[in-house]
Design a protein around this nucleic acid. Structure first.
Lengths: 121, 121
DNA sequence: TTGACATATTCCGTTATGGGCATGTATTGT
DNA sequence: ACAATACATGCCCATAACGGAATATGTCAA
C-alpha cells in the first residue's frame, strides 16, 4: 500500500503547506479562484487542484456566481484535528515535569549500568 | 516535485493513521517497541519504521535500556498543530451564523439570476 | 456565433510512500 | 563463543502525489 490519499481525511489534506495557506486565506472571507492565485502566487491549475482536494475532504465550500467560483473554508471540518491535538495538551503542560522525569530515568539507568545489573522483562 | 516527505514536519508525519495511534499510545507512558507491536497489532518492522518517522520529526523521544528501546510521545511537538487548528476555532463557533449567511448568499444569487443581471468584476 | 475570460481536468515525469519479507545489528544469558 | 532476544534497516512493489504545460469545460459579452 502507498501513502493514504490526500483526500482520505483532513489530516492528509492539510499535510500540504499550500493547502494550509489556502485554508487560512479562505477562513476570513470567501475568495474567487483568481483572487487566491493572486494572493498566494500559485499557478491557477495548481490552486484548482488543491481546492479539489479541500473540497473532497469537506474543508472548503464552493459557491458559483457567473463564471467565478467563490471558495470559503469550512472551519467545522478542522475541528476533529483540533480535538485530536487537544488530547495532548495536558501533556505538554507537564513538559517541565516530564523533562525532570527523563533526567531521573537517565540517572537511574547510569547507576544500574555502573553496578552491572540485569533487566527483568 | 512529489509529495513532501513524511519527515518534513509534524503535519506530514501525523497524516498517517497508524502514527496517530502510536502517538496516542505513547503519550500516557513510554512503551518498548514490542509493547507497541502487541498493543496495536502492527508488524514489528512497520512499527520501527513509523517510529523512525516520528523520531525524525521530534514527535517521540527514545530511551535505551539494555536491548529494549522505550519510546514516548513528545507532546510539545504537537503543539504547533494545535495552535494552527486553533486559529479556526472562532470560525466554527460562528458556524450557525455562517450557515445563515450562505443561505442568504444563495437567495441573493437566485434573485439576481431571476432578474437576469450582469456581474461587474 | 464567436471570442474572451474563469476554472477545471488531463497527461507526464519524478519522487516517495507503506506493507511484506528478509536480513543486519546490538545486547543479554548460558 | 554462541544462541536468543529486541530492534532497525534494506529491498521490492503497487500506488499516488505534486508541479508544469497543455487542453477542456463553462459562462458572459458583443
Amino acid at each position: 500500500m502507498a501513502r493514504a490519499a490526500t483526500t482520505s481525511d483532513a489530516f492528509n489534506a492539510v499535510a500540504e503547506p499550500r493547502r494550509r495557506e489556502i485554508l487560512t486565506l479562505l477562513v476570513v472571507r470567501e475568495h474567487a479562484v483568481s483572487e487566491i492565485v493572486a494572493a498566494l502566487r500559485i499557478d491557477q491549475p495548481s490552486v484548482s487542484k488543491h481546492l479539489r482536494v479541500l473540497r473532497d475532504t469537506g474543508l472548503v465550500r464552493m459557491r458559483c456566481q457567473g463564471r467565478q467560483k467563490f471558495y470559503q473554508t469550512n472551519a467545522e471540518a478542522i475541528r476533529p484535528m483540533h480535538e485530536w491535538t487537544a488530547t495532548f495538551e495536558r501533556y505538554w503542560s507537564h513538559q517541565l515535569l516530564r523533562v525532570k522525569e527523563r533526567a531521573e530515568a537517565r540517572a537511574k539507568q547510569i547507576s544500574e549500568k555502573d553496578s552491572s545489573h540485569k533487566e527483568k522483562p
